[in-house]
Amino acid sequence: MKMTAERWQSLTLGIVGIALFLAAWEAIGVNRLAGLTWPPLSAVFQFMFDPTKAQLFIRAMEASFSMVILGYVTGSVVGIALAGLVHVLPVVRPGMDRLASVIHAIPAIALAPLFIVLISREFTGMAIAALNVFFILYVSTTSGLNNSTAGHRDLFQVLGSSRTTRLLRLDLPAALPAVVSGMKYSVPAAFIGAILGEWFGSSRGLGLLMVSAMQNFQIPLLWSAVFIASTASLIVFGLMGLLEQFVYGRYK
């Protein structure tokens, strides 16, 4: 990746934009422009980095992020595996497509009570995260597996390739850009799912912190939890973006 003038410009503009956003946040908070529930950024940071609160946040982060990771991995594996299955067994494709869209069409909120009964309160967030991630990866992988060009398919046929060899050496590598894009876009979905799930009576996690802070009017705590969750999601999203760039450069 070369740092061209264009890249520098977009990077500088990005930093300026973020700085403006944070400054506006601070200014609105300090001047109470949006009332009591909008604290200045400095107040949120002060609360967040208070050493006596460290333990609280670390425990909440451990609980939430482990659910995010678990849900993300489960959803990805199931989504990619089922997409692979319908690619090899095209007969089941229409049925599976419909099932995936029906599940996706039901709001996660409506399913949450079901998960609480079926699994447990602690794993409801993970289940919603997995469901969100599953749908995105199922869709991106099924479409990705058809991304090989007609010329490449002809090549494998004249080389006398078996179906399995073609899947491994052509369809999967050709699908990789779409899969990685799906993995990028399912990062926020996994965070939303996990944190939303914790609202339904989980005993730990950032979602629980948010709900209890909201109910007890602990505004800096609420904003801290939101800030941590958003930052974590953005960082992972950014890292996946870098991976996506690399994969697009090589596989497309």
Binding site: T149, G151, H152, D154, L155, L159, P173, R250, Y251
Partner: peptide, 13 residues
């Protein structure tokens, strides 16, 4: 069988 197509059909990865 060996075939060379009009479009080289090399795998980019």
């Amino acid at each position: 069988l060996g075939v060379a197509f009009q479009d080289h059909a090399l795998l980019p990865w």
